[in-house]
């Protein structure tokens, strides 16, 4: 069989993308497509795993048996989602262990929202409602991403996450229907998590270095700013319904655009947190490294046993 030139292969590849035919693991793909996917999916996987920590912080202190079970199940789901995503990166030829090492060495980032501390129980509500809400906006869009294993992982994740946002909003609603102390707790969480949630969509389109190519490859299907706007439009009425104030004096409905206008995001803060200067960056990575190091002998033991008893 005649070998196709790189150029021809690239052309065929883009034609497939344009026809919305999914790319599968062993298909030919440009090196940069593979690298972009590895970066994006592993960042996404790390975000799920590191994201377990701020919420996990409240499992032992959850205020009722029901809330404890719900929170455990939710954080457990995140472990599952990280696992699905690591599996997707493995189809691109990188092992989970190497991917995780890149997280621990700081080579690959995770969503900077998880560098903020969870200080009160209301933060668990705010994370479920806002942070998961923002994540879901992204993830729903990614169900149609061009790489098959990533798209399939996202479909599964979206299905499972549908309860996450609801349980967060339910916590916030309960607090807002509660005592003065509970309402204050809820508003305080809102004040701290609103802006970082908006930052979750990443830099504005003008600043985002990866957006254009990723859109052409249909890895991304919407721009950061489009998704951010959808999130604001969806969240404002939800906040109003239960009496929470959005901490943004410039927020108002724009009839002509059919969207909410909102104030400028403090990108300086965003870059500081991404750059490692957030309130919990160090603790998050330390916790992950500790789990890996303390688990080393366990993983070794299981392998040693399996080798001894290979039938």
């Amino acid at each position: 069989m005649e070998t196709l030139t790189q150029e021809k292969l690239a052309e065929k590849f883009q034609a497939k993308i344009d026809a919305d035919i999914k790319i599968e693991p062993n298909d030919w793909m440009p090196d940069t497509y593979r690298k972009t996917l590895i970066r994006q999916i592993s960042q996404h996987a790390h975000s799920e795993i590191v994201g377990m920590l701020p919420e996990g912080n409240w499992i032992t202190r959850a205020p009722s048996l029901r809330r404890k079970a719900v929170l455990l199940a939710k954080v457990q789901d995140e472990a599952g989602h990280g696992l699905y995503l690591y599996s997707a990166t493995e189809t691109l030829g990188v092992s989970r262990e190497d991917t995780i090492d890149d997280l621990h060495s700081g080579k690959v980032k995770y969503s900077s929202i998880f560098n903020y501390p969870t200080l009160t129980w209301a933060d668990i509500g705010a994370i479920g409602w806002l942070v998961d809400g923002a994540a879901i906006m992204n993830q729903v869009a990614l169900c149609r991403t061009s790489y098959g294993p990533y798209a399939r992982a996202m479909v599964k994740i979206c299905k499972e996450e549908s309860f996450h946002q609801r349980q967060g909003y339910e916590i916030m609603t309960t607090l807002m229907n509660g005592t003065e102390a509970q309402r204050e707790m809820a508003q305080d969480a809102m004040n701290r998590f609103w802006w970082p949630s908006l930052m979750m969509f990443g830099p504005s389109d003008a600043e985002s270095k990866h957006t254009e190519q990723s859109m052409r490859w249909r890895i991304k299907r919407h721009t950061n700013d489009e998704l951010r706007q959808s999130f604001v439009d969806a969240s404002v009425p939800q906040a109003e319904l239960i009496g929470l104030k959005i901490p943004d004096p410039n927020l108002k409905w724009n009839e002509a655009r059919g969207h909410y206008d909102f104030g400028a995001i403090d990108w300086e803060e965003f870059w500081q947190v991404v750059g490692g200067n957030g309130p919990c960056n160090k603790e998050r990575i330390e916790a992950r490294v500790k789990a890996k190091e303390e688990g080393e002998w366990v993983r070794e033991a299981a392998m040693a046993y399996a080798k001894k008893h290979k039938s």
């Binding site: 696992l83 699905y84 599996s87 599964k156 993983r299 299981a302 046993y305």
Partner: peptide, 11 residues
Amino acid sequence: VGSLRAADAEM
């Protein structure tokens, strides 16, 4: 449905 890591078949 997906994949995972395990040391042996039972696991």
